[in-house]
């Protein structure tokens, strides 16, 4: 956020004489030394597996365990064979719903909490810790707790609703096709709302007091200071939060859904996401024998979908965001 990149400055920087750039490269060998460990680790644990799974997706497995070149055949199967295409589009659609729910519920709540915390209320740090703790819990624990809370047999949700005269509202939410995905999404929101809250909170704290004081002197009240001064300053952070939500929606959603609803995204595939589809295809599910090539194809499609989403964000949104020196 400290980097000033208004249009004029950008042009000014690009117009600088090449001489200086040359000198930088010549004396910059230490840069490579410093980034080498990161590049090495990143290559071994991220880039190599990615390339390998892209490679796997271009082959087809045979009964004896060997593989033959299949070109883009697996992708054609995934997108056009009715069996695979139904599952694929259903999973992708569910992922988009999940993303939507996180965007309209998790991130605004995160923003609200951060805004409240930045006012330094009493016990602020206690709230901050309490709200952030679920993020650190294992999804299996979170899934199990919520399954119990919502259970028709042992759960407290019905009793609690009954205490305020709303027992008739109770439904086995996790078991109904119409509500299962929303319920799982909200559980995930409960768990992860601490992350956008912390990111936004940090951004809010970095706004210099002088700006706020100046706005106050100009006659703005707290409400307008938030909308006119703070919010524009933290927009880049909100952008980062959005993109993290988008990526997390494809990667992090899997564990929770797998632990609560199983690998088939019960009931009736209504909570099936790309992650669960990938999992059962790659590793197998009961009598379905794992197919690493088809699994790699789904994984690669997830990679492309994330890549497209991030690219769109970088090209259309990030570049237009006004950044301010503070």
């Amino acid at each position: 956020m400290s980097e000033a990149t208004t249009e004029q400055e950008k042009t000014a920087r690009e117009a600088k004489p090449p001489k200086r750039r040359k000198r930088r490269v010549g004396g910059g060998w230490h840069i490579f030394v410093f980034i080498a460990p990161a590049v090495l680790i990143y290559t071994i644990f991220s880039i190599y597996p990615l390339v390998e799974s892209l490679r796997l997706s271009l082959f087809d497995g045979l009964d004896d365990g060997s593989a033959v070149w299949n070109g883009l055949g697996n992708y054609v199967t995934l997108l056009f064979n009715p069996t695979w295409a139904t599952q694929f589009w259903n999973a992708l659609w569910n992922n988009l719903i999940l993303f939507f729910i996180h965007m309209v519920v998790q991130n605004p709540i995160g923003l609200l909490l951060a805004a409240l915390l930045s006012l330094a209320p009493r016990f602020g740090s206690t709230y901050r810790t309490l709200i952030f703790i679920p993020t650190l819990l294992s999804v299996v624990v979170v899934g199990f707790i919520w399954e119990l809370i919502l259970s028709p047999l042992w759960g407290v949700s019905e009793t609690l609703l009954g205490a305020v005269g709303l027992a008739w509202l109770y439904q086995p939410w996790l078991g109904l096709e119409s509500t299962a995905l929303t319920t799982v999404s909200l559980i995930s929101v409960w768990q992860y709302v601490g992350i956008p809250m912390m990111l936004i909170y940090a951004a809010l704290l970095s706004i210099p007091d002088e700006l706020i004081d100046a706005a106050r002197v100009d006659g703005l009240n707290g409400w307008w200071i938030f909308w006119k001064v703070k919010l524009p300053l933290i927009l880049p952070t909100l952008g980062i939060v959005a993109i993290l939500t988008y990526i997390g929606n494809f990667t992090a959603s899997f564990d929770l859904i797998y632990s609560i609803q199983g690998a088939l995204g019960a009931p009736n595939y209504s909570t099936d996401v790309m992650g669960t589809l990938l999992f059962r295809t790659f590793f197998g599910q009961q009598l379905q024998i794992g197919d690493i090539h088809m699994g790699a194809t789904i994984a690669s499609m997830m990679f492309f979908i994330i890549l497209i989403g991030v690219t769109i964000y970088l090209v259309l949104v990030q570049r237009r965001l006004q950044r301010y020196e503070m």
Binding site: T83, W84, G175, L176, E177, L264, A266, P267, N268, Y269, R280, Q285, Q286, L287, Q288
Partner: peptide, 23 residues
């Protein structure tokens, strides 16, 4: 019968639950 895709056993899980759920 569960050798191909869609997998009959996976299907059986889903449709059996659907019958119970009135889906």
């Amino acid at each position: 019968l569960s050798r191909g895709e869609p997998n009959t056993w996976n299907n059986m899980w889903t449709v059996s639950a659907n019958v119970f759920n009135d889906a």
